[in-house]
Simulated assay, not measured.
Amino acid sequence: MGMFNNMDVGGGVADFWSYIREPRPHRWAIWGVAVALTWVVFHGVSEYLIPYEKPKPQIIYFENWKATRGEAEIRADWVARAKETTRRNAEKRAEYQRFADSMGIEYDSSEADKVTRETLGAEEAAAAKKKPAPSQARSTLAERAARGAPPAPADQPRR
């Protein structure tokens, strides 16, 4: 520990400067390679190892209302937005319910369903809760086998 108490930085810098000033063969070529290699390493790290994505321009739309809009119009707009949010929540809750049923997990949404029925009405709440039609473009191998469809030829690539 005593060795680091009396550090002579000036002497070290002077020794380094005298070493650099000595005329050696190829000293400028070595300096050029050292500087170029340092630049390549730092540039490579900053360019390729630390990715930077330029922010993409965004278009943000907002609603513009008349200054003469009445309180009834404002309330009607609030109610419409609240009903839309409630409908989306009911659809999402139905998805969670189907997932919980498939996994065998107990999931009770009866209290939330009651609020949805009160907000939207019974018909619209039931429509939001019903299972959507599957949008499967291709049939599975098991479905084709069940229908008795011929298997794909061996020379045809699979998708």
Rank of each mutant, 00 (worst) to 15 (best):
A137N: 08
A133P: 01
E111T: 07
W39T: 14
I60Q: 11
E22A: 13
P23T: 07
E95Q: 14
R144W: 04
A122R: 15
K131M: 11
W65L: 14
E111P: 01
A76W: 01
I50V: 15
A14D: 05
R98K: 15
P157S: 10
E47A: 14
S102R: 15
M3D: 02
R144Y: 00
E91T: 13
P151C: 03
G2L: 13
G148P: 05
E118S: 03
N6M: 09
H43C: 12
Q156L: 15
V79E: 12
A127P: 02
V13H: 03
Q97F: 08
K129L: 04
A137R: 07
K131T: 13
E106M: 10
W17I: 11
A126C: 06
P134S: 11
K92V: 05
Y52V: 13
K131L: 06
T116V: 15
Y52W: 14
A137D: 08
A67I: 08
G32Q: 06
E63G: 10
V9Y: 11
M103I: 12
A29C: 05
P153T: 08
A76P: 02
A149W: 10
A34S: 03
A152N: 07
G32T: 11
H26P: 03
I30W: 00
F62M: 06
F42S: 11
A137F: 15
E118T: 06
E91N: 02
S109N: 14
R27T: 00
W17F: 15
D77I: 01
S110N: 11
E53Q: 09
E91W: 12
V79W: 07
I59C: 01
Y48C: 09
G11Y: 05
D155Q: 13
M103R: 13
S102F: 00
K130T: 14
K114R: 15
P55D: 03
D8G: 07
L141T: 08
E22V: 10
R88T: 01
D77V: 05
Q58G: 03
F62A: 12
P134Y: 01
I30F: 01
I30E: 14
V41T: 13
W39N: 12
E53W: 15
D108Q: 09
K83E: 04
A128S: 09
E124I: 03
A72Q: 14
V115G: 04
M3P: 04
R27E: 02
N5I: 06
R159K: 14
K66G: 00
A127G: 04
P51V: 01
S102T: 11
E106D: 03
F16S: 12
L49S: 05
